[in-house]
């Protein structure tokens, strides 16, 4: 129960990882305790810096919407995504066609 899993080429030991996280956590809290002592909660120190402008009341206006996440990634792969979204056409009969197509290809491969 407490031993490790041998995967044939390597092994997996969850307790080594937990020990690692404990050590890393200890290091983190040590470094954090070395930080500035003059920080005070609830003073001007934790005001949001919004380019010198007043921070909007509604969080909506300072959020990056989900559709803008990974903009660079989707932009770089634009051709791939254009083809892929066009492929997911929403036509029920096309979906059925792909199934029959796979069946045909598999038949060619298996029967030969």
């Amino acid at each position: 129960m407490w031993s490790l899993i041998d995967t044939g080429f390597g092994f997996w030991d969850v307790y080594a990882w937990i020990a690692f996280f404990l050590l890393a956590g200890g290091g983190f809290f040590y470094l954090r305790s070395q930080g500035r002592k003059d920080y005070r909660r609830g003073t001007d120190q934790d005001d949001i810096f919004y380019g010198g402008n007043p921070v909007p009341e509604d969080g909506e206006e300072i959020t990056v919407p989900a559709s803008s996440a990974y903009w660079g990634f989707t932009r770089a792969l634009e051709g791939w995504y254009k083809g892929l979204t066009a492929w997911h056409s929403g036509m029920a009969t096309e979906y059925l066609g792909y199934m029959v197509l796979v069946m045909g290809l598999l038949a060619l491969a298996v029967v030969r």
């Binding site: 199934m99 796979v102 069946m103 598999l106 038949a107 029967v111």
Partner: peptide, 24 residues
Amino acid sequence: EKAALVFLVSALAMKCGTVPMHMW
């Protein structure tokens, strides 16, 4: 048996959502 294999594999692969039969 080969024909049966083709039918079974493709139908069951569709049911567990394999590309290119994953659109549902």
